[in-house]
Design a protein around this nucleic acid. Structure first.
Lengths: 242, 242
DNA sequence: GTCTATAAAGTGATAGAC
DNA sequence: GTCTATCACTTTATAGAC
């Protein structure tokens, strides 16, 4: 629990101290006193600068989420400007949605691990109770991306699309917040988590889930390196109903 | 904030009151006094019956998670007994992983909505800090499912498989915890959330993500109901690198 | 098992001096 | 802007009577 160097404006130090503590312990388990102490500021500082504890929480959230959402929209704009007739690859839309998280991680004062955890907590604890200022932002983002997905995945029913997007967002949040935990739980099989590799994996997973290609004919698989017994697995032709 | 009918053993009433409050407000925002009051018990009851507040939290978590994990393993056993030579459909393995949540929802004293939120919170808040008694359980479950997925998806590298499983679990947790929120955010497009339908949607999404079929040749799509302009979208042949 | 009373520490917030 | 002092509660936990 290191103190944060003095000299920077108090307000800034408070924000930095707060975000680190929130990342470590969760938004609810951090007292105003913990923050001010870590920031080397006075107990009253939080109330002076942010009006209340809640005000501080909101500012921390805004500071993290707003640039992410802005970059998302900017990337989407750019995609839509690209060669008007041509269809944009689904993967690019998904990347426009996720990569801003990585940008934020790099921009953040926090370590990669902590920053990811903070974002995960943000989305987890506060998904249903975002600050007013962010609700509109999120509505805009999800509207824009919904339309983008509709264009890139023509023929998918609207409700299906919305749910697929929901699943996609969920796997992203969870993967970010618990990536290191995966490492532990699997005894290291998942490999040292590099963000860029994880992003790549995520995009592939999400793209497959979003488009849900079903092979019309027996699939061509590369079976060259499989055991004989595995060469002709009975691939489920998914008589999948519910 | 209704009281829970007296007459049932205090311990039981405390558990029921606690789980409802935890679902509503999150594990951290509920005081022991809130629980005892709702349960119509004495303030000291929690400490008498569970040793401490933390003891109560652990019991609530165990009560929800253990039967889910047991059913998961039982379903997997059953799948593996089925026609030994034949390969089990991926969808069935995924369902063995998720359906126990629905079973739990039906068994629970809580409303569907609250129960899903509680489970979502469990996985969110406590994924990294499960009670000791559950850590082993989770390790066993994830090992068993890892092996099942390996068998059903031959040819997928181990680390890829682990990550895909991780993404899958994440989208499930998130979808459960925030399904109603999706409804709000999309202005109702997602349709009234029926658990069975959501499960079906989830299984399809997850299965596609887990197997990641890539078409080797131009895909046959049903374009009969598309506009002319949409008939020949340039389907991305995913030169997808990162 | 249940209760009261109370301890002991922690909580967010603020008035008012500097 | 910053600080001290302090208020007004709330928190978990427990000792000891019933």
């Amino acid at each position: 629990m290191t103190k944060i160097e003095s000299g920077i404006a108090t307000r800034q130090r408070l924000l930095e101290a707060a975000q680190e503590l929130f990342a470590l312990n969760g938004f609810d388990r951090v007292a105003v006193r913990d923050v001010t102490e870590k920031a080397g500021a006075n107990v009253a500082a939080v109330n002076y600068h942010f009006g209340s504890r809640e005000g501080l929480v909101e500012k921390v959230i805004e500071r993290y989420i707003t640039p992410i959402n802005e970059e998302r929209l900017a990337r989407l704009d750019e995609l839509e400007r690209r060669v008007p007739g041509k269809m944009v690859p689904l993967e690019d839309v998904i990347e426009a949605f996720v990569r801003p998280f990585l940008t934020q991680v790099r921009r953040s004062e926090l370590s990669e691990k902590l920053c990811l955890r903070l974002i995960g907590r943000l989305m987890g604890d506060h998904y249903g109770q975002m600050p007013k200022s962010l609700e509109l932002q999120f509505q805009l983002v999800s509207q824009r991306f919904k339309r983008a997905f509709e264009r890139v995945l023509p023929g998918v029913a609207e409700d299906d699309l919305v749910w697929r997007g929901h699943f996609m967002a969920g796997s992203m949040v969870h993967a970010m917040a618990n990536g290191e935990m995966l490492h532990r739980l699997t005894g290291g099989v998942s490999g040292a988590p590099s963000m860029e590799l994880t992003l790549s994996r995520f995009v592939k997973f999400a793209a497959a889930g979003m488009r849900q290609w079903v092979p019309q004919a027996p699939i061509e698989m590369d079976v060259s390196d499989l055991e004989d017994s595995e060469k002709n697995p009975e691939i489920p032709q998914s008589e999948f109903l519910f």
